[in-house]
Amino acid sequence: MAGRNTIATSPLPAQKTKLSDHPASANWGDRIFYNLVRLSALFVIILSSLLVIELFHGSWEAINKFGIGFIWGTTWDPVKEEFGTLPTIIGTLVKSLLALIIAVPISIGAAVYIAIFAPKWLRGPLSYLVESLAAIPSVIFGLWGLFVLVPIVRVIQIWLKGHFGWFPLFSGPAVYGVGVLAAGIILAIMITPIITAISRDIIRSVPKSQMEGMLALGATRWEAIRKAILPYCRVGLAGAVILGLGRALGETMAVTMVGGNAFALITSLFDPVHSMASQIASEFSEATYSLYISSLIYVGLVLFGITIIINILAQILIWKISNGKVGIIE
């Protein structure tokens, strides 16, 4: 998405001729190069097909046993060999959504500051910090979350429950600390650097003339950003958010450490939450019979499916917001 956007915003005139029209025209070197990149593209396709095949193959026993009902089953009982995964699906979606709600405004705000307002001497260090934040392993976030964040969240939860306990979202057991809220916050912290870094690049790729034009017309800086810059790169920003969401959906370690991991349907922000990825990771090594393992792989298949559906929805959303046109050149 970011790539498309850079094409869209590049000042080059539209090219009518396509490279792919003349694959064999050039010399040997060109031909080899053409075949190499084609092979690379093919490799990606083969890899994802193999992934799907393997997921189906591994989960076949569970698919036969539970069918599609696995998705809305609410029991996960390794003793009685009964499996269903609805609570983890909801848990995964809710905590990811919460993470987006927290992370998106902060990330885009930070990106706008770094790309437009920050003085030159600050821009480099800030960018560097954001990028190194993105490189921190998730287990570190998890440990930090468990020892630092969770106690703070507990205090906040107890306060919230004391003052706004009538609000359904705050009705859960406040004293645990671990749960949806803690998982959402830790995920937000983890996806903020990704969204920030990509958004910054996208905002910087907006031609200066856009903003200068707005300012020349007498717009305030806020108006210039809102009306000239953000609409100009909305597609790229949406892409950045979706990349962040992708990480949030699949994030395992940190969420496992602060989520509370209770297999139950969540009703409040304070409830302990289990997610699909953490369930697979934590139970796989001690899954002692084939239906159990198969069910865990089935969870993986469902997670894969959810990720694809969300990506498709995101594409549709991007088409919608860009009126069916992804970029200027198409």
Partner: peptide, 10 residues
């Protein structure tokens, strides 16, 4: 090795 726990957190 893992069961359906009646409660509370893992």
């Amino acid at each position: 090795t893992s069961v359906r726990w009646p409660g509370d957190i893992g």
